[in-house]
Amino acid sequence: MKAVYRRRKVVNALMCAVVFLCAFLTLAPLISIFGYVVSKGIASVNFDFFTHLPKPVGEPGGGMGNAIVGSLILVGLSCLWAIPLGIAGGVYLSEFGNSKLGAAVRFTTDVLNGVPSIVIGIFAYTLFVVPMKSFSAVSGGFALGIIMIPTVMRTTEEMLRLVPATLREAAFALGINQFRTTMNIVLKTALPGVLTGILLAIARIAGETAPLLFTAFGNRFWHQGLDQPMAALPLQIFVYAISPFDDWHRQAWAGALVLIAMVFLISIVSRIVIYLRYRSFK
């Protein structure tokens, strides 16, 4: 009997160690990737990087100012149409989503979430670039917006469902109709959560490159209008990363660092918002 006990204990300890090792093996490389980008990029991030245009090959210096501005514009464009639509869709799912149609909407949202971003890119290409006969910021904003919608919708839905039923009931008891209850009470209460969903979606699209390859396309100059090709930070990083020039690689590392810093900052802020808000519910 003793031997059996001992074996069980040994196996238990061993497997717990293995499971710990798994966690370590998944996290350590990801963290070291982050550390590597920081160590490579920090030397090249300076004031010029944010304010200057890229220099031609061979000339040192220059920056990605146009790409940073371009990324902000593209993200802004996609927010402009995708956030209202996403929130409205989330309201629909949480308030009227228990029907057959609601289930269908929920399912297609998941499908849309899984569609590869490159496929959404070629969709935006046929819809905008082909008829307009030019790459454009608008087509990039459209593609990124579609990628945003499922995230915004599903988090809005979840956050609205988290609002305590008592609040709704209190509103009904005061004679407020369902529509006003949803808009003025439920949505308002859930607003920080909804905001989190929006921030997460922004963090996701800020790093998207594939759908921009043949929509926004990239541009070596400052913003030239929404119907013209537009630079974007991830695109610029890609072009510089696959180039053979050391100077450009340095710029690409700096770009990668700025991009990661932006994305991480957004995700961390969103988590702090949700932590502060929902601490009391738990």
Binding site: L30, V37, R204, G207, T209, P234, F238, A256, F264, S267
Partner: peptide
Amino acid sequence: ILASIPSVVLGFV
């Protein structure tokens, strides 16, 4: 948070 590292950065590394 690590899930949000952009793929172009992962590719570069």
